[in-house]
Amino acid sequence: MSTIPDAQPARPWRPEDGPRPEAWTSPSTDRPALQVMSAGKRRHAPVRARQNWPDGTVRYQVEVDLLGDARVRNLTYEWPQPGLRVAHRSTSEPTRGVDETRQGDMPRRGPTPA
């Protein structure tokens, strides 16, 4: 059993926090990843987005299986904290905002008619 504490998720942004955080994403084929300490083990957690908050804090939205039972959750963690460490970095430059074409998702709307 590890003496490193489990990583603690951060609460989501709220309007009373001020301006929304700036989000950065990487291509879905080359996402960075963290190791999240959960239930005494380090869990691999691909990063969905990095959030730069106006107060200077950084948070990472990740996909993580907290118990090793194949139930993946989307959680956000404030960086740094003892229960987090870098698993690997992306070799691609991140994009500001959510770029659906780079994430492999379907665009929310079709092209604007000419």
Rank of each mutant, 00 (worst) to 15 (best):
A39S: 13
Q81D: 08
V36Y: 02
P107M: 07
S2F: 03
R73E: 15
A39R: 14
L66I: 10
P12S: 03
S2D: 07
Q81Y: 06
L84N: 08
A87K: 05
Y60G: 11
R42G: 08
D6K: 02
K41D: 12
D55L: 04
H44S: 11
E16S: 04
Y77A: 03
D65Q: 03
P12Q: 01
R59D: 10
K41S: 13
P113I: 08
R85Y: 00
R73A: 10
E16N: 03
A33K: 08
W53E: 09
V64Y: 06
P32D: 10
R96C: 10
Q8L: 13
D55Q: 06
P21S: 04
M37P: 07
A7V: 02
S38F: 08
G68V: 06
P113Q: 09
R71H: 14
G110F: 01
P54T: 07
E100M: 14
G40R: 06
D99A: 07
P21C: 03
G110H: 04
P19I: 02
P32M: 12
V36M: 04
P107L: 02
P80G: 12
R102P: 02
R89H: 14
R89T: 14
R20W: 01
Q8S: 11
Q61W: 11
N74Y: 09
R59A: 13
G104M: 07
P21K: 03
W79L: 14
S26L: 15
P82L: 11
R42T: 00
L75Y: 10
Q35P: 00
R96K: 13
P111V: 01
Q8G: 00
A23I: 09
L66Y: 12
S2V: 02
V72H: 08
S26Y: 15
T95S: 14
P5A: 03
R31E: 12
V98D: 09
Y60N: 12
G104I: 04
D105I: 02
D65K: 05
G97I: 08
K41T: 05
Q51K: 08
W24V: 04
G104P: 04
H88W: 09
R20C: 04
R108D: 11
R73S: 11
T3W: 01
Y77L: 12
V47F: 04
R11T: 04
Q81C: 06
T101W: 09
R20A: 15
I4M: 03
D30Y: 03
W13H: 03
P94N: 08
R11D: 10
A49R: 11
D55C: 04
V58Y: 06
M37E: 10
S90Y: 10
M1C: 06
T29V: 11
T76N: 12
P5N: 05
P107E: 09
V36E: 09
V86T: 11
P80I: 11
L67N: 15
D65T: 11
L66P: 12
E22I: 11
D65L: 01
T57I: 02
R11W: 00
S28L: 08
